[in-house]
Amino acid sequence: MPSTPQQLQTSAQAFSRVSNFPRVIGAIDGTHVAIKAPSIDEAIYINRKRFHSLNVQVVCDGNGLIINYSARFPGSTHDAYIWRNCNLRHHFSRGTFGDYLLLGDSGYPLEPFIMTPVTNPTNEAEELYNRAHVRTRVVVERTLGIVKNRFRCIHRSGGELQYTPLRSAKIITACLLLHNRCVRRGIPDPNDHLQEEDMPNEAHLGGDGDHGGTGRETRDMIIREFYG
């Protein structure tokens, strides 16, 4: 994650150039990586598509560099639960990143430091906000697609990882870090682009549910000042 004022500003500028969305330093999403059925607690690894997986939380910057991740939760775990129980959220809650923001889809809770789409927009400003949100946040979906294209062992077209959840998490982590090395060295993306195969999140578990007290106020302010 960016830490110095200059790094924070540079990261926010990269996202702002996409669609004028202010103060964003990262886009967050979850992705499922198929694993073989574990011998212990097998049921909790079955996700909503009925295959065994780890649900991996990823945050990337505007250049597709992965700046935070968590690969320790079983497939039945919802994105919002992973977010609420990760160290990164605690840092945002403590004000480590000031007034800078993450962008998440409707599977995440609306909080002062994580902006989600307006579930039922009622005016043009909210619709403009939603369009800017989608165009800006798509970088994380694209990044996840690229990672799985580079390393087919974590894409479902490559089958499933034939290891324990702990060993699988280490393999996934290695793939994420190797992706960053590719980005930093300017190695081209794979030519044969597979689609990210994950399922959409349930909007009612995130979206407009304001778990942070002032999340709605922050979003309303952004809509009013930048898209009104």
Rank of each mutant, 00 (worst) to 15 (best):
G95M: 00
D105N: 05
T116G: 09
I35K: 01
D198V: 15
N123D: 13
R152T: 06
A132T: 15
A12C: 01
C60E: 01
T4L: 00
V24H: 00
V147N: 05
A203V: 12
T116F: 10
S3I: 13
K49S: 01
N47K: 05
T119D: 08
A27L: 03
F51S: 08
G209A: 09
S19P: 01
I171D: 08
N201V: 14
F226Q: 04
N201E: 14
K170Q: 13
L161C: 13
L88A: 10
K170G: 13
V134C: 12
I223R: 06
D198C: 12
R72S: 15
I66M: 06
R17S: 15
I35H: 07
A27Q: 04
R181D: 10
R17V: 10
R72E: 13
R219W: 12
G207H: 11
G228Y: 15
D61V: 06
N191K: 11
S39M: 10
T218R: 12
A169D: 02
Q7H: 11
R89P: 00
L144P: 00
D208R: 14
Y69C: 10
H155T: 00
Y163M: 12
L65H: 11
Y227F: 14
R184E: 11
R137D: 04
D208Y: 15
T77C: 08
D99I: 11
A125Y: 13
P5N: 08
L102N: 07
D189E: 09
D99F: 01
R50L: 08
C60Q: 00
R131L: 13
R152N: 07
I171Y: 04
L166W: 07
H193Y: 12
G75N: 09
V140F: 08
V118E: 06
G212K: 09
L54R: 02
H211E: 12
N191F: 06
N55F: 08
I222D: 07
V183P: 08
T218Y: 10
R48D: 02
H32S: 09
S19N: 09
N130W: 05
L103W: 01
N20H: 11
V140D: 06
A125S: 14
V59Y: 04
F92H: 04
N191L: 11
H32A: 04
I222N: 10
Q195L: 14
P117W: 12
E127W: 06
D192P: 01
I66R: 03
N63I: 00
Y227V: 09
Q6N: 06
Y163N: 14
E42M: 02
V118C: 06
D79R: 09
V147P: 04
T4G: 11
L144W: 03
V58A: 03
S157D: 03
R23E: 04
Y100P: 00
P22W: 05
L176P: 14
S19H: 05
A132L: 12
P5M: 00
Q162K: 07
R72I: 11
